[in-house]
Design a protein around this nucleic acid. Structure first.
Lengths: 206, 206
DNA sequence: TTCGTTAGGGTACGCAGCGTACCTTAAAGC
DNA sequence: GCTTTAAGGTACGCTGCGTACCCTAACGAA
């Protein structure tokens, strides 16, 4: 692992994109090993077989490097589940999200989220990937439910679709935990998500 | 403000609770002025008219001091609104919460939340105050709505009651903003919160 | 009142980590 | 080959956390 950096002694000097990639990979590896808190510029430089100059020429500070490195780690999201019923799909999506927070990658993201702190620009860049990826799956699942007649078209509203995800995120953030118990997921789906969709099924009623 | 510390030259030496209070007040003042990011042990010590020893004898590290100091700032929460209708009450509660995040106090809390980072214990202590305070108001508002016949008793569920608040928090956290536009609050209430309560009004339907 | 114990005050230090400066040296382009 | 550009090496300044030591005031018991 990270062979790129270690065996670089005596080799030819890298430039431009090659070096940039090496730095990003080194930073990503450090993120996975030590999290954002343990990501230091010196160690990244050493691991990439270069020095801090090369890094600071490309990223203005540690946070920016962290966010950029995280992009390397961001994986393509899987196909949304299709269990044949809305409840099963929703639970599955929630469970996947819940697992993601526990994974090494999720841990990195949590560290990054809390570490980036005062820089909304970077935060936005993080959410772009993590957030947008989630929304699509929920809309797909909802579409299928509408097609099946298990939900009304009024349910198709981005904020509504991702309510369950938002609640899970809230649970994790406010409690400072890595993942929520499964019972919480079930509760979110049964006590909030499904009733909400029911409530939106009759737009005229009040 | 902070007069305690500045005029301490030549006075008698403080001990125990008196000194502890002085430190906490100094730390709280620093929090308000510079946020958690700007809270340094040296400055707190200087402002309290003491030195770092006295601080480290009481709190193990900066984060712990920050959280303890924040308690000093936490205000009693106001009475929940009573506009006579559920929608108005909910919107008002949301607007208050939204303002709170923008206030200096909210700024401190945000900084603290992101700064405490890897210490779930401290995080939990923070949420104890900030979180619990919120829930009560929502339950009260819901109770009144139930009494008026505007909501069914099934709505009285802690997770359900605070859904709007959770969504707002999610909005703020994921976007890295200080406060959400009012349109978002309205959307949360009209597109999610009220439909959800409607959906829970008929437990047997499916 | 005196004397020992406790806790505060003063200060200096070690250490880590960020970001910068400056010079040397290799790669690329003409 | 010669110039320009960018990488490498290294050292440094700075800030801030947490610790160590020693001195001194307050407190309490004899």
């Amino acid at each position: 692992m990270a062979g790129d950096g270690a065996e670089r002694t005596g080799a030819t000097r890298r430039r431009g994109a090659a070096l940039e990639q090496a730095i990003l990979r080194a930073a990503a590896d450090e993120l996975l090993e030590s999290g954002y808190a343990g990501l230091t510029m010196d160690r990244v430089a050493r691991r990439a077989g270069t020095n801090k100059n090369a890094i600071y020429r490309r990223w203005p500070n540690r946070a920016a490097l962290g966010v950029a490195a995280y992009r390397q780690l961001a994986v393509a999201n899987l196909d949304p589940p299709d269990t044949g019923e809305l409840r099963g799909d929703a639970l599955e999506l929630l469970r996947r999200a819940n697992c993601h927070w526990t994974s090494p990658l999720g841990e990195v993201l949590r560290g990054l989220l809390s570490g980036v702190g005062e820089e909304p620009e970077l935060l936005a860049r993080l959410q772009e990937q993590a957030g947008a990826a989630g929304t699509a799956g929920w809309l797909t699942v909802l579409d299928r439910a509408v097609a099946r007649g298990q939900a009304s078209p009024e349910a198709r509203h981005p904020r509504v679709a991702t309510v369950a995800l938002a609640l899970l995120r809230n649970e994790i953030v406010t409690r400072g935990i890595a993942s929520a118990p499964d019972a919480v997921l079930v509760e979110i789906v049964d006590e909030v998500y499904l009733p909400l969709l029911r409530g939106r099924a009759r737009p005229g009623v009040g």
